[in-house]
Amino acid sequence: MFFKKKMQHDYDLDMHNIPGHIAFIMDGNGRWAKKRKMPRTYGHHEGTKTIRTLALEANRLGVKAMTVYAFSTENFKREASEVEYIFKLPKEFFNLYLKELMENNVQIRYIGHLEMAPIETQNIIKEAIQRTSVNSGLILTFAFIYGGRDEIVEATKVICEKYKNGEISLDDMTEDYFEQHLMTKDLPPVDLMVRSSGECRLSNFLPWQLAYAEFIFDETLWPDFDEEHLHRAIAIYQGRERRFGGVLK
């Protein structure tokens, strides 16, 4: 379902039906900058402001977890200068907003291959995780150097090694057991996935975890996505009947 930026509406949200975990594919930063005759990096810079805005609002609404697709394993195919800039964004983001996130009880986590990032980037993210580790509000997870297929392959390797060593039998291999080997094992199930900019694909983002999530594809470019768009997405989510493979009664 699509909706555009031009909205001025107060949505009467059911506070007893707030999605527990919202995942965002943050698309459209480059196009947003191009429309303003600015470099793509400026769009990424502005997009970090949206993360801060939505994290604080999601936390206020009682959302338990918010996962954002910050950098995919495929993003290394982009221009080297753009990749280099994106690796600098965590420092900029946490320098600006970590204090505010701390004050609002937000906890920082990541999924992906952080070890592939520059050491400075690794240290910045690890410090944010450590400083927010005791917080009990929204869990803000950055999918950073993350690929969904890679996650499934890596989980399968670990499980196969356990089987090879006689630690488990084939009967132990259930969906629940497999999920405990995914990077998201400590996060609640994803209820809602929102992708900005109008593209209608998952782009290798959380393919296992999104099996029964509700999808919303929003035409708004990521830097323009604000609290009202979040409220609208939640209102749409609340208007849907989630059956998880069952039938309406």
Rank of each mutant, 00 (worst) to 15 (best):
F24P: 02
F24I: 07
F24W: 07
I25F: 02
M26F: 06
G28N: 11
K34E: 14
K34C: 07
K34Y: 14
R36V: 06
K37C: 09
G43C: 06
H44K: 09
E46S: 11
T48E: 10
K49D: 13
L54Y: 10
A55I: 03
A55L: 07
L56H: 06
E57W: 15
E57F: 15
M66K: 05
M66I: 07
V68D: 02
Y69R: 04
A70Q: 05
S72G: 09
S72A: 09
S72I: 05
T73Q: 15
E74F: 09
N75R: 11
F76N: 14
F76T: 15
E82D: 11
Y85W: 08
F87Y: 14
K88L: 10
K88R: 13
P90W: 00
F93M: 01
F93S: 00
F93D: 01
Y97S: 04
L98D: 04
E100R: 11
E103F: 06
N104T: 08
V106P: 06
Y110N: 07
Y110H: 13
I111R: 09
I111N: 09
E115S: 15
E115K: 12
A117T: 09
P118W: 01
P118K: 01
I119L: 15
I119T: 10
E120P: 00
T121V: 01
Q122Y: 01
Q122I: 01
I124P: 00
I125F: 00
A128W: 00
Q130A: 15
S133K: 14
S133V: 08
L138G: 03
I139W: 07
L140I: 03
A143F: 06
I145W: 02
